[in-house]
Nucleic acid binder design. Structure first.
Lengths: 127, 127
DNA sequence: CCCATGATTCAACGATCATTGAAATAGTCG
DNA sequence: CGACTATTTCAATGATCGTTGAATCATGGG
């Protein structure tokens, strides 16, 4: 097409749903944490050296792409993580500040608990 | 029956299963916490004035007896609570010390989080 | 324009979940 | 014993879960 002002950045991939942090409710948070793969995603994210630089594709040791997508959605819809698109890649990060404001201290205990436990799988994310 | 040494206390009601605290795993704990009724039971227990004096029957505002029994079992099997029988009554309590040893700091954050949130139902337990 | 790549969506599956109401069990007390 | 109370168990329901594999979508590069 040949319009004049199509200066829109092409990187506007379909937006995934993120709840307002005020709408997030404890029971849903804990339900989202109630799966070893999702806890694995969380601690791996928490231990990632550079924040907001973890590609979704870095988690393939934990599950198949399609299953990962399912678990990413669970964490995202529970207000725990954020998914950001950049070109053909998607980056995953923890909604630290917001979440800490909503549920002070909770995330740290959860991550510490999951990090300490051998039943939680984890990967090294090379950014 | 007329044996000589039947000095056995009659309060040996069928024992309910409690996992060893070492066998408890984070994902199962969070799954158990992922329900508003169970969070309600937990904060109500935590706010009970006299520890280990909360009758199961005190929770009937939260759900029907049979549903309560189901949720009690979930909390118990996740290592969070203990059920103790005394005559025809059962008492429910939080496995504070053990649980804190296994997952330091977690229970307090969870209870604080649930206590602060209006989506979690709660009752006043009169012991 | 077509192809490769990264990721989500869809359809299907068996498993578990939350809930209900009725039945069983355990203990107490007349 | 027999009625009564407190609680669990059972059977049944529809809903959601975790998983798989195939299909789809979006983007970037030849």
């Amino acid at each position: 097409m040949s319009g004049a002002a199509d200066a829109i950045k092409p990187e506007v991939m379909k937006q995934l749903f993120h709840p307002e942090i005020e709408d997030v409710v404890p029971a849903d948070v804990f339900a989202a944490l109630g799966d070893p793969i999702r806890l694995g995603i969380l601690v791996s994210l928490a231990d990632c050296d550079e924040v907001d630089k973890a590609r979704c594709g870095a988690f393939t040791e934990l599950a198949s792409p399609s299953l990962l997508s399912y678990h990413f959605a669970k964490l995202r819809e529970a207000g725990i993580t954020r998914s950001r698109a950049e070109g053909t890649v998607r980056f995953l990060s923890i909604r630290r500040e917001e979440f800490n404001r909503r549920f002070p201290g909770l995330l740290d205990s959860v991550i510490e608990t999951a990090r300490r436990d051998p039943s939680v799988p984890r990967i090294k994310i090379d950014v």
